[in-house]
Amino acid sequence: MGLRPPPLSTDRLTCRRARPRFGAPAGKLRLEKTSMFKALFVEHPRAVNESYGEHWIVANRFGLKMIVAGLGTMLHGFVPGLLTHAGSDAIRKLHGEMTRRQTAAIKAQPDRPAPNRWQPEYEI
Rank of each mutant, 00 (worst) to 15 (best):
H44F: 05
G70W: 04
A69K: 13
V79G: 14
E43L: 12
H76V: 04
H55D: 10
L40W: 09
N49P: 10
H85W: 02
H85C: 03
A47N: 10
F37K: 06
W56Y: 08
R46P: 04
E43I: 14
S51R: 02
R61L: 11
A39Y: 08
L75C: 15
I67D: 06
G53F: 07
H55E: 06
E54C: 08
L75P: 08
H55N: 09
T34M: 08
I57C: 14
A86I: 04
H76A: 06
M74D: 15
V42Q: 04
V79H: 12
M36P: 04
Y52W: 05
M66D: 09
V68C: 14
G63E: 07
I67E: 06
V79A: 08
W56D: 07
P80N: 09
I57G: 14
A47E: 06
G70K: 03
M66G: 13
F78Q: 02
L83Y: 10
L83T: 02
I67P: 00
W56T: 14
H85P: 01
F37A: 03
L71S: 08
L82S: 15
L40P: 05
Y52L: 00
T84E: 01
F62H: 00
H85L: 00
H85I: 02
L40G: 05
A59T: 09
S51G: 02
T73Y: 05
H55V: 11
E54K: 10
N60S: 13
K65Y: 04
P80G: 00
L40C: 08
F41I: 00
S35N: 11
G70C: 04
E50R: 11
A47G: 11
L82N: 09
K65T: 13
F62C: 02
A86F: 06
L64Y: 11
G70Y: 08
F78I: 02
R61C: 06
H76K: 10
T84I: 03
F78D: 01
H44Y: 09
V68N: 12
E43D: 13
R46N: 13
K65M: 04
S35R: 14
S35T: 12
L64I: 14
H44G: 04
F41K: 03
T34P: 09
H76L: 07
A86W: 03
G72D: 06
Y52G: 05
I67F: 03
F62E: 00
A59C: 15
K65G: 06
G87H: 06
A86Q: 03
F37P: 02
F37C: 05
G53N: 09
M66S: 12
G87F: 02
H44L: 08
L64F: 12
E43Y: 15
A59Q: 07
M66K: 11
G77A: 14
P80E: 04
H55W: 14
G70R: 08
R46F: 07
T84F: 00
G87M: 05
H55M: 06
V79F: 11
L82A: 15
M74R: 14
A69Y: 11
I67M: 09
H85V: 00
V48L: 06
V42T: 01
V58E: 13
S35A: 09
